[in-house]
């Protein structure tokens, strides 16, 4: 995707519109956003990115390069991709007249929120690999993440993996066979890069 191309959700809103709405403290109240689960999932992800950005520029770590220039752009693009409803994950119900399901977008947003528990970590991409629409089929979870320089990676990944497993066990009927986490970025605070310039 071209970075100037708007990232549009199924509801018609763009990530850029939602980012501006968030920057305006969600005023004036827009019911077409506040009544849309995709928009709300995106706003949740954007809020975390915004908080992380703030955390980074207020930290004082000097030994590693700052995040790539397009680091936040990549995360926003991933949020755009993930919040769309996606596949339909079945939930059990004994009555054959009932059809219960969970959207893939809701589950990916749930996984992304599990990253909040780990200080300095932000999830880059999340994927559910496998036939999630087939009850009981094995599903592998693949996550990439970025972590701030001073966090021990083994501890962080262990904590994240535990929370992802617990969240998926509590909120889905997926047969999760693995949670694979790749730390793709290690960075210091943006404020130090700014000091050098």
């Amino acid at each position: 995707m071209n970075e100037n191309e708007p990232r549009t959700l199924n509801c018609g809103k763009t990530i850029e519109e939602l980012s501006a709405y968030l920057a305006a403290d969600r005023t004036p109240y827009d019911p077409s956003i506040e009544a849309c689960p995709e928009c709300l999932n995106a706003l949740q992800g954007l809020t975390r990115v915004s908080q992380l950005f703030h955390d980074l520029i207020t930290q004082d770590v000097t030994d590693l390069p700052a995040p790539r220039e397009n680091w936040f752009e990549d995360i926003m693009t991933n949020i755009h991709r993930e919040v769309r409803s996606g596949r339909s994950l079945p939930l059990p119900h004994p009555d054959k007249r009932v059809d219960l399901s969970l959207t893939e977008g809701a589950v990916l947003a749930l996984i992304r929120s599990a990253g909040d528990i780990v200080p300095g970590l932000v999830i880059g991409t999340c994927h559910l690999k496998g036939n999630v629409e087939e009850p009981g089929a094995p599903v592998d979870v693949s996550v990439t993440a970025s972590i701030v320089w001073n966090q021990p990676i083994p501890d962080a990944t262990r904590t994240l993996r535990t929370h992802i497993y617990e969240a998926l066990a509590t909120h889905t009927a997926l047969n999760v066979t693995s949670v694979n986490i790749t730390i793709k970025d290690l960075h210091r605070a943006l404020s130090d890069e700014n000091k050098e310039n």
């Binding site: 995709e38 809701a106 947003a109």
Partner: peptide
């Protein structure tokens, strides 16, 4: 939660209605 929603809707269906219930969870927060 999804099951409770479906059960609530099923319980609301008057006798004589042939009905189906579809519940989709779109957000967990």
């Amino acid at each position: 939660t999804a099951k409770r929603v479906a059960d609530t809707l099923l319980d609301s269906i008057p006798d004589g209605h042939d009905a189906t219930v579809t519940v989709q969870v779109s957000r967990i927060a």
